[in-house]
Structure formats: C-alpha cells, structure tokens
Design a protein around this nucleic acid. Structure first.
Lengths: 205, 205
DNA sequence: TAGATTGTTAATCGATTAACAATC
DNA sequence: TAGATTGTTAATCGATTAACAATC
C-alpha cells in the first residue's frame, strides 16, 4: 500500500547508503552519522538526513544511526531483505562474467539461469551453469516465477529479447547491451554501458 | 580554453545522444529531430534541444539534425574523436570480461593492458592480453602515458589501487568494485555496480 | 508558400542546502 | 548538564518544460 511517492532520485541513492552501511558492518562499526556517511559518499549530510526521513525516523539525536538497524531498514525498503532470482540472457563474455559474479550474494540477488541462442554455446558449462537454449526462456521464467533479468546480448538482439522477457512476466531488466530499449509502463529498466561512463569522463580531460 | 561551464548532468546525457545517433547511422539514417531522439531515449524534445544548444547550433529549422554531423560534433565535444588507451586492474571474471569486451571499438577507447597481483594469474593469457604484474603498474602507466583506468579488483583493494593509479598519473577511473572511493579533486571517477541498479528496481516491484 | 523544427526565453517545477528547535 | 546530531522547515538553487519567434 504505497501511499507517499518518493522521488526516484532518492530511491536511486538508497542502494548507495546501504552499500556504505554494509561496508561499515564489515569494518565492525556500530553507529554512524549523516556526516560520516556523507563524507564517504560525497553527499551532504543534510541530503542524507532528508532522504532517510522520507521513509521514517531511523536515527537518534545526539548519537546518530545504528548501522545494523539502518541497514536492515533500508534492506526492507528496497525489498532486498530476501533473495531475488535473476536470469541472464546472453552467454558471451559479459553474460558469463555476470553469471559467475560473486557480488550478488548477501545483497539480495542470485543468478539461477543463463541463456543463449547460439548452438555452439547451448549445453556448455559456465561456472555453475549449463547454458540453456533461449527458446525455452519464456517457459522457464514462468515456471520459476522469475521477475528480474539481465540482458547481455549483442545490441541488435536486445530489444527483441526485452520484448520476450516482458511477455514472459519479467518486471525488471538490467540491460548490458549498449542500446536504449523501450518497455511498457511498469516494467523497470536500468542500463550498464561502461562507454557512457568513460565518455562522460573524457569530456573533462 | 573551456570558458562556459556546462552542468554535469548535461554532460552525462551527451554519451546517450551519441550512442543513439551512432545506432541511427548503422540503420542507414541521415537526419533526425529532437523529437525522434527524445522518443528513443525517453527524454523530452525540449530538453535535448536545450542540452545541445549549450555546445552550439547543430540543427536546421524545419529539417532537424544531420545525424552524421551531430555525431561528429558530439564526438569532438566528448573528446572521443580519438582513441583513449585504458588499463584494467584486476584479472578476475569482471576484469577479464572488460578486457575482452568488443564494445569499446569505435567509441573512443581501447584496452591496452591488464594487471593483477595474483601470482597464479600473472603471465596467463586473457584474450589478447598477457596478465601483467601489478607491481609494474606505475611504470607502465607513465611510460605509455595512460590517463584512463578501470578498477576490477575485490572491494578491499580498490582504494589502494585507486591511490596508486592517481599517483601514477591516471586522471579518469571507472570503478567496478562495489565500494565508494575517494580521489583528489580533478580526477574523474565513475562507478559500475550492477547491484545498485538492481536494488533501485526492486524497490518498485 | 506552408509546414516543420530549431534555439531560446520565461515559467514552472523539483532538488539541495542552510539553519535550528528538539532531544538523546 | 553540555555536546552532538537528528528531523524538518524555509530559502536557495538548478533543472525541466512550455511556448514561440525565427527560419529552413
């Protein structure tokens, strides 16, 4: 029953707060302040307090935030207090690396299947995965009730794959293909294209 | 001699415009409009015109933009009308995938060296690269005059690697380790962390 | 010419920051 | 209590949108 609408730009910062807090937990820390978090992240303390206050009152005047507690609260807010199963489409270099990536553990995600449409790849072993045939994508998604997918195909195929994923019931797509996609309202879409980041930096060199 | 300061948020959209234009070139298109670009990218036409007008007048009333010409202009603006050599630090799954990635070609970048500090990896072949010893990082960067680097090490090592890179003269870092880094003023820093994108989406599920 | 689309201005909208009372 | 830090309000700042004259 989402009543208050939180600006997307704030939602987008919450994972950064969570990541910093989890780092602090690893370091054995117990409490932090908006100021310290801000320094680590390069964000103003006022903004962090304002962002967090959108979701509740998590701190104590005079002492700051319990790291464990705040991390737990943000995990709930972002719905990563559970494990989302992900499928990966495209078993090339990127798809294979993503499928093997250890960094999803404990952050709310687990890759469960890896697909490709290349007959020479289907059946091959990639880490713990046997590459599955893309033609079985829809059935597999529906059978397992998967909601999150990553696209790691060549650009020209990405839109068709996205269409298929949406049709199969996928509700969130992370696209590694360097191309813009169109998905229906209500389907979440995010992009990872290293060149976009690199070009943004070379402007300043 | 940069005189007018362009908001960073606008600089950040320019690579997206360039990517869409290069896609149109592949499709054999010759001209486009702010409206068409906007539809592809999910950005308003007014914003695209406003963004582009920060850098010059690239269009023609009544007809729109020559795709070739505009792509060329944006390439110059972003300084990707040349090829930047990149080094990759960390030859695990991500670093290896990034080093082999074909998508840098024609977009202004080329990976030239791949480093690791793990003796079992040093000397191994990864695609066209022989994994080099991280202890030679500084010398190699300076000798080749490299300015752009990617970090693909485990999180705990990332800050130390960043410090070393900066010391060696690197001016732009793309960090794949899921941790915030601190670099001196004037050194460009961007992040890629798939989990941040995924968590931003699960909020809405 | 008529239609289309730019570049730009002014208006609107939204995000960030500064400041401080509340309170641990 | 004194010091520290939150959550929140009001002020500032910046980004987006709407509208349109200019002009191809």
């Amino acid at each position: 029953m989402e009543t208050k609408i939180i600006p997307d730009i704030i939602v987008g910062r919450m994972p950064l707060y969570l990541r910093a807090l989890q780092r602090m937990i690893e370091e054995g820390r117990r409490v932090t302040s908006s100021q310290e978090l801000g320094e680590r992240l390069g964000i103003s303390a006022a903004q962090i307090r304002k962002d967090l206050s959108q979701f509740g009152e998590f701190g104590k005047q005079g002492t700051g935030y319990s790291i464990d507690y705040l991390a737990g609260q943000i995990s709930q807010i972002l719905k990563v207090d559970r494990v989302w199963e992900i499928i990966v489409v495209g078993a090339g270099d990127i798809g294979s690396a993503v499928a093997r990536y250890q960094g999803f553990t404990n952050r709310g995600f687990r890759v469960t299947m890896l697909f490709d449409n290349d007959p020479t790849k289907i059946g091959q072993q990639v880490g713990n995965f046997t590459v599955l045939d893309s033609k079985d994508l829809e059935e597999a998604i529906q059978k397992a009730g998967i909601q999150v997918a990553m696209i790691a195909t060549p650009s020209p195929e990405a839109q068709a794959v996205a269409d298929l994923l949406v049709k199969a019931g996928i509700r969130a797509i992370l696209n590694y293909a360097p191309t813009s996609l169109n998905v229906p309202e209500g389907v979440q879409l995010q992009y990872i294209d290293p060149v976009v980041h690199l070009q943004r930096m070379t402007y300043y060199l």
